[in-house]
Design a protein around this nucleic acid. Structure first.
Lengths: 248, 248
DNA sequence: CGAGGTTTTGACTCCACTCAATAGACGTGG
DNA sequence: CCACGTCTATTGAGTGGAGTCAAAACCTCG
């Protein structure tokens, strides 16, 4: 489940990640920032494809991604998997565990991923004391839900190429917002099989859809780096409109 | 957009619906109930297929379903539609508008539907005064999100018959929980085209999948009444596990 | 009884899946 | 530095689930 303790701490502290993230979607006061900075975090790094929280766990803490990516997923009886969402620095993937005690899905680290844990008790004390921060966190979970709905549209009404393009667009905007991507390129630490599990495709078809996007000249993906050559083209095939991300 | 004012008020008051609903998923104190009962509601009835809130609106109130069903949906450029979720008595479909100001999707009444509106200002005052109620409402939005994720699994990894069976199971449990269904039957006020838009299918294929469920002897659907003849069978083809509904 | 919506059926097409084999990337250890 | 095993990516061939188009049957209600 776990890995080695943190080696060399990343340059940005846990609190700073969370503050940066919340500022991108809501108004955060100086008092809110101070309260976040007073939280005590436990930093840990997970190796590739290790589980941070298992399906069925009853966690006593929630985690803040600082470096790398994580995803939530569930496996079905026939061995198929569905990835619900990806989480990047600044995100708190399992904040809902504050309110829903048993995890109905797992949380997995992709590649090398550093997260900071906060005890539920600390978090609860914080949101009882500071209503405006509680509202900001609530808002954040609602935005997570809008992303989930966007995924529903993708799976329900877009075909493979559009789905993939949409994911590429969303992740670029989100990563850029927290300062982890720029210049239309970013590290996409996923295998094609994982891409397929997120998009509701077979890995063979994920491969072919990716080739289609390459052939169109929209993206290249090589050695885990995605480069977007034609943002407008990508946005068009994806029918991507960033409004649902509610970035201020 | 609207319709006639309420004719004969339903037997259960708006506050009672909300209390019943929240009690089914969280612990609610006597004070919480009193606070809900002190809210002022404006009841209105919408005719079939009329819009309660439009995509792009900036609502100043949120609405509580009292009778009938509503759904949220969005239309795509090519004319296709995706229905994200259905809402039944006790649900507050647009509570997120408290935090996310512009609606990125529409809310539509199916058949005759009665809803009660509460002003955002009243709601905000309430959740600032009563933290435990705020937490219960937050929790409710998180459960809405788990249902959305379950929809993602359906669209991504189940085929048509399983998707439909899953929806039938979920709606039965939800309706029974608030006392609107019993004895393995309920009013399903949807056309097959709407069913298709919710399940990410064409209406022709929705029809064929429904026939398949009939042929298996699991359900009948006639004159908007769904009867489940074989719950276990339905649950099995759906791979349905009600845990995600977080009903206590 | 007729009009308009909804459900059903048939025929054909196509997107995406499965199975299977090959090629490439990467890390490890001899 | 190369051999080897293990992932991961790519390709091909054949299949099948779901879509499209269009017509017919069926309700329902004024």
């Amino acid at each position: 489940m776990s890995d080695d303790p943190d080696p060399g701490l990343p340059s940005v502290a846990p609190a700073a990640w969370l503050i940066r993230k919340l500022k991108s979607t809501a108004q955060i006061s100086a008092r809110d920032c101070a309260d976040i900075e007073n939280l005590s975090f436990t930093v840990r790094t997970f190796g590739g494809r290790t589980s941070i929280v298992h399906e069925g766990d009853v966690p006593k803490q929630c985690c803040l991604v600082m470096d790398g990516w994580a995803y939530r997923c569930r496996s079905l009886a026939n061995g198929q998997r569905q990835i619900f969402a990806f989480y990047v620095p600044g995100d708190i993937p399992d904040i809902e565990s504050l309110h829903l005690h048993v995890m109905d899905q797992g949380l997995v680290a992709i590649a090398q991923t550093t997260v900071a844990f906060v005890a539920h008790s600390d978090m609860r004390a914080l949101i009882e004391r500071n209503t405006s921060l509680a509202m900001a966190l609530w808002r954040d979970t609602l935005i997570d839900a809008t992303r989930c709905r966007e995924r529903v549209i993708s799976l329900g009404r877009r075909q493979a190429v559009g789905r993939m393009a949409h994911l590429f667009c969303e992740m670029y905007i989100r990563l850029r917002t927290v300062g982890v991507a720029d210049d239309f390129r970013y590290v996409l630490p996923l295998t094609q099989a994982e891409l397929a599990d997120a998009l509701g495709l077979s890995s063979v078809h994920a491969n072919r859809s990716l080739q289609e996007l390459r052939k169109l000249g929209f993206v290249t993906l090589h050695r885990r780096e995605l480069i977007i050559h034609d943002w407008d083209g990508l946005e068009t095939v994806a029918e991507f409109d960033p409004a649902y991300l509610h970035i201020v």
